[in-house]
Design a protein around this nucleic acid. Structure first.
Length: 303
DNA sequence: AAGACGAAAGTGGTTGA
DNA sequence: TCAACAACTTTCGTCTT
């Protein structure tokens, strides 16, 4: 990811870090947030071979769930000339007419308003598009089931948004979201739970395994250390000593133990830093791991 | 001098009456 | 809806390398 600024205007430090999830550039030295929103001019899809490339490449704006008509804004003509068309084309015509009519039903009108609100708040909070898309999907579902009736539209949007944030592990508090609408924290929380229950959305606690590769990479650890850490996490999971604990803490501690086992030691501070937890947490988890998995004898061995 | 360790007090989120 | 609770953080002092 290209950086457009290379020096912090506040302290002059060149240690800048781009946080992709938050879309912010942060100065590692003084913590100043330099740029809150960036426009990603790259393609939003990936292509792995020629076939996929042919399928996925296109021009124009992305097909997106945040637009009620999926971004197709061309007006479809009125009836009249239809019968001059071939049957194939006539079918297409009716298909498009369907979408045309769809945006005028009450539900779609409601959704249109809701999505406008969603886009506004998303950009205000600098949320990545995956989250926005996810909330849009959720809101559509909720609206389709008539869950919005008798509830404020804003609150439903907020609930869907909060759920999506949690699902994608984008750290936005209830307060931040409530403030952006604005709604009270209570209202957002209530609709959030309502939406989850009704749509059967389970926010499963994030799996520590997801974090291991990322942290290992940031610590420049060799593959063997990483796979050992993954192993440790799996063992820990099978003995259910991971439940209720913060997943990042587990991942970090497993990595730390693994570094000791392979003589690739990193300081607790460094590990804590990349994992976004404190050294204390690393120590606690690490102590647990050693105890419960009887790893004590293996630590210190250098191979 | 830097890292590791652990105790104590405080905070935010979850849970159960 | 509110209070209890566990996990996690912050802070700080001590010990080890």
């Amino acid at each position: 990811m290209a950086k457009y600024i290379e020096k912090c205007p506040e302290c002059g430090s060149k240690e800048l870090e781009y946080d992709e999830k938050r879309g912010e550039i942060v100065c590692k030295n003084c913590g100043l947030v330099l740029e809150e929103s960036k426009v990603d001019l790259g393609q939003e899809w990936r292509e792995f071979d020629w076939e996929q490339a042919m399928k996925k490449r296109r021009a124009g704006s992305p097909l997106t769930k945040t637009k009620p008509d999926k971004g197709l804004t061309t007006k479809v003509g009125e009836a009249g000339d239809v019968y001059k068309l071939s049957s194939d084309q006539r079918k297409k015509y009716f298909k498009y007419r369907k979408w045309q009519r769809r945006i005028s039903t009450p539900i779609e009108r409601n959704i249109k308003l809701a999505l406008a609100e969603l886009r506004r708040v998303s950009s205000y909070l600098n949320l990545p598009s995956v989250v926005t898309e996810e909330s849009a999907r959720t809101y559509r579902k909720a609206a389709a089931r008539g869950l919005v009736r008798g509830r404020s539209m804003e609150a439903m949007v907020a609930g869907a948004l909060y759920a999506a944030c949690k699902e994608h592990e984008v750290p936005r508090t209830l307060d931040e979201i409530a403030e952006a609408f604005p709604l009270t924290v209570k209202e957002v929380g209530k609709t959030y739970r309502f939406v989850c229950r009704q749509l059967d959305i389970r926010i499963l606690p994030p799996d520590p395994l997801n974090y291991v590769p990322r942290f290992a990479d940031e610590l420049n650890l060799p593959v063997k250390v990483e796979s050992e850490a993954i192993d440790i996490v799996k063992q820990a999971k099978s003995r259910s000593i991971t439940s209720g604990k913060g997943p990042t803490g587990i991942a970090a501690a497993a990595l730390y133990v693994s570094t000791l086992m392979h003589g690739e030691k990193r300081t607790q501070r460094r590990v804590a830093e990349v994992a976004g937890v404190t050294e204390v947490t690393i120590r606690n988890r690490y102590k647990e791991l050693i105890e419960k998995l009887e790893l004590g004898n293996k630590v210190g061995e250098v191979d």
